[in-house]
Design a binder for these strands. Structure first.
Lengths: 217, 217
DNA sequence: TAGCAGTGGAACAACTCGTTCCGTTCCGCT
DNA sequence: AGCGGAACGGAACGAGTTGTTCCACTGCTA
C-alpha cells in the first residue's frame, strides 16, 4: 500500500526511483491545485499532463478522482488554517494584521480551492474536522479585529468569507494580471469594510447557515 | 422560415396555434436565461424542460445551441444597454443615479449573462455592434459620475465592470438570499468606490484590454 | 374533412472522461 | 551480469452525457 502522498514521509534522502516518486507526489498535487482551481470539473488527464506525468502515476497514488479531490480540499484547508494562524500570531495592530492575513489568503487561493471543490466529491470526517478548525481560527481573527473596533459592525465574519471567495473569482486570461487585480479589489473591499461605516448596508448579513448551505449537494 | 423569436412580431392578437407559438417564444428565452445563467454549460434539454416545452419547439426556433446562445447574449446585452440608458436619463445627482443603475444591472443580471456566455459560442457582427454600443453607454455613465467628482479617481470604468461581474458570482443555494446578498455586497463595494478615496490601491487599474481579453477563446 | 404548422419526446451518433491494463524503463540486490 | 519488481506512460475501453434528428400526434383553418 502506498504512503499517503499528502503527508510526505521523513526526510531521509531517497535515492533513484524513490526520489522520482517523491518528487511526483508534489508535482501531482501542485498540478491538481493549479488545474482544478481554474476549472473544478477538469479531467484527470489534464492534471496528469500539467504535472508532466502519465495517468498511471496518478492512479498509483489515489484510488480515484474522488480521493484526489479530497486530498486537494484537505491541502487547501490546511493552507488556509496555517495562514490564519500566522495572522493570529501577527503582533501588529489588529487591522493591519487582518488585512495582511486576507491578502495572504487571496494570494494562496487556499480557501477558494476548498470551496470551489465543495459538492464535487464525497466529504470526509477528517475534512469536517479540518473545516471546523479553520472556522474557529477565522472567528478568532474576526473577533480580534472587531473588538478593536476596526471592522464595521454590520458585517459578519461569514460576509467576509463570501466576499473573499468572490474576489478569487476575478478572472482574465493573463495569470499575473489576475493576481494583481485580485489584490487590487481586495484592497478596495477592505476600504469598504473598515470602520467607521459610510452608510447602512441593505439585506441581512450572511451567517453560518448561508455558508454551510453551499456544501450540500 | 420562422420569424426571429427575439424580435417579437407586431402585436396583432394571434389566435389558436399561433398564440401558443408566440407564448413559447418567450418561455423558451426566459427559461434559457434562467438555466444558462446558473450553469452556462447546461444541456439544451434542461432549457426545454424548464420552459415546459419539448425539444422540438426549441429547435424549430433556433438552428442549434449556438444560435440560442447568441440570441441569449444579444438579449442580455440589450437589457444591459437599456438599463444604462435609463441610468443616463436619471436626473438625480450623478452618484445617486450611478448607484441606482448599478443596482438595476445587478438585479437584472443582464451584463453577467453575456459575459458568462462569452467563449461558449461563435461571436457575431450584430453582437459586436451591440457590445460596442453598451460600452459607449457605460463610458458615458462613468464619465458623468467621474466629472461630478463622486468616483474615486484611481478606479477605471473597466474596474467597475469586473467588480460587477464578480458580484454576480455570489452564490448560495437559496435564490432569494442570493439576490439579497448581491445587493448587499454591491452596496459595500460602492462605499469603497465612492470619493474621496480612503487610501491608495495596489496594482494597475483594469483597462479595456483586460476586458476584451476575456472574450477570446 | 384534408392539410399543415406546431409539438413532444424517443432514438441516435458523437463525444467526453474515469478507469483499467499492458508493455517498458530503470534501480537495488545478489 | 542478470533478475525482480516498483514506477511509469499512454492506448484502449466502457459508461455516461448531450446535441440533433425524426416521426407520430394534436388541433386550427379553410
Amino acid at each position: 500500500m502506498p504512503d499517503d502522498p499528502t503527508k510526505p514521509a521523513p526526510e531521509v534522502p531517497l535515492d533513484g526511483r524513490r526520489r522520482e516518486a517523491a518528487r511526483n507526489d508534489r508535482r501531482i498535487l501542485d498540478a491538481a491545485r493549479a488545474v482544478l482551481l481554474e476549472d473544478p470539473g477538469a479531467p484527470v488527464a489534464a492534471v496528469a499532463k500539467r504535472a508532466g506525468v502519465g495517468i498511471s502515476a496518478l492512479y498509483r497514488r489515489y484510488p480515484g478522482k474522488d480521493a484526489l479531490l479530497r486530498a486537494l480540499a484537505r491541502d487547501g484547508l490546511e493552507r488556509f488554517a496555517a495562514a490564519l494562524e500566522d495572522g493570529l500570531a501577527d503582533e501588529r495592530d489588529p487591522w493591519t494584521a487582518y488585512t495582511a492575513t486576507l491578502a495572504a489568503v487571496v494570494e494562496g487561493g487556499s480557501q477558494a480551492l476548498a470551496q470551489r471543490l465543495a459538492g464535487t466529491f464525497e466529504p470526509d470526517d477528517d475534512l469536517d474536522r479540518l473545516a471546523a478548525r479553520a472556522d474557529r481560527l477565522w472567528v478568532a481573527l474576526d473577533a480580534r479585529v472587531r473588538e478593536a473596533g476596526a471592522l464595521r459592525e454590520d458585517v459578519t465574519a461569514a460576509d467576509v468569507v463570501l466576499l473573499l471567495e468572490v474576489v478569487m473569482l476575478v478572472d482574465v486570461p493573463d495569470a499575473a494580471r489576475v493576481e494583481e487585480l485580485r489584490q487590487r479589489y481586495l484592497a478596495l473591499l477592505l476600504h469598504g469594510l473598515k470602520a467607521p461605516a459610510a452608510g447602512p448596508l441593505p439585506g441581512a448579513p450572511a451567517d453560518g447557515a448561508d455558508l454551510a448551505a453551499r456544501w450540500r449537494r
